[in-house]
Write a protein that binds this DNA or RNA. Structure first.
Lengths: 172, 172
DNA sequence: TGATGTTAGTTGGACGTCCAACCAACCGGA
DNA sequence: TCCGGTTGGTTGGACGTCCAACTAACATCA
């Protein structure tokens, strides 16, 4: 069924040339950065979902499970999950709905605050997420397609970009 | 209505520590890279769609219009669009449907090949995309939140990552 | 010429994201 | 004490992505 074949040139490089040709040379680097991030996101997400798909997970749900697994008690308020993963409350509701349907997580009433709902990892969920993490580590994270020093450099730069975008603030 | 407030720490840095603590030190850098790209994608897409929203566009549709605008004749087969933007044929159909509804693009029969459909930029579409490009250039691309040298470095690294992921191949 | 295979595009469904609107519960000041 | 403002979560709608299935139309080869 004809795997989508690669281009014979770099589309982002081509776009940069077009941008300069249009007289937007000063915006070209930013455009290239944005487009690179978009495309890389797409590639990585594809690999990840391919790795998680067979075990019925997606990256979004994996992140939720991982967060719960790393938490002290294995349960967190939905609002906390949204803050940590930086996603909209509606996205959390959606993810928890599906995880709950699969029996990987349970919704529990908060003991004192009647507004908040806790998501609690089930035993099944804990087993599942560990397995998924191993799969991702071996099939994706350890071969990202970049030498270690470049990985560190990119992460550092993107961290600065995120900080400059008010993604987080240093702890004073 | 309480803009979502930033975290007081870097969640990716925290995730890296957790990864190492779990005994996955060798996968931690890759995990950090992937997560950084995901989050940066989300931030940038948010800024872009905020800039384009007022003029009724999204980044996906903007890219289609831009590609047509840069093309020699202002018209391209849908399949070509999908290849260039590296998206699924169904995504192209979707984008063209909406652009056509807004009168920015028209579907035209290919003169010789009865299978292919051409997307043709309308005058309105050409005006619109130029305006959108100016908006993006000034509000997003020229202030990406990173100094120029770092932008170039990140783009270079991501280009290599894409090449290593068969995103494109050098022209021999 | 006719069977077979490939390519182009559409459709429907599954998921993800976001926003706006809405309800319930908590909280703080008059 | 009670009223108004905040916070937590859900719901419905708009969009984007992908995949699988399906129809046309072109191409190839016996």
């Amino acid at each position: 069924m004809a795997r989508r074949q690669p281009l014979r040139f770099d589309p982002i490089d081509e776009a940069s040339r077009n941008w300069r040709k249009a007289g937007w040379a000063d915006a070209a680097p930013g455009m290239a950065l944005v487009t690179s991030v978009m495309r890389t996101h797409q590639i990585l997400l594809g690999k990840i979902d391919a790795a998680l798909g067979p075990m019925g997970l997606t990256f979004a749900r994996f992140e939720v499970l991982m967060l719960l697994d790393f938490s002290r008690t294995g349960r967190l308020p939905l609002s906390k999950i949204g803050q940590r993963l930086q996603v909209h409350p509606a996205s959390v509701t959606n993810a928890i709905d599906r995880l709950e349907l699969d029996g990987l997580v349970e919704r529990i009433q908060h003991p004192t605050d009647g507004r908040t709902t806790l998501a609690a990892l089930t035993d099944e969920g804990r087993r599942h997420v560990r397995e998924a993490a191993e799969a991702l580590n071996t099939t994706v994270f350890t071969h990202v397609g970049l030498p270690g020093d470049q990985i560190a450099s990119v992460v550092d730069s993107l961290t600065e970009l995120r900080r400059n975008s008010d993604d987080f603030v240093e702890p004073a």
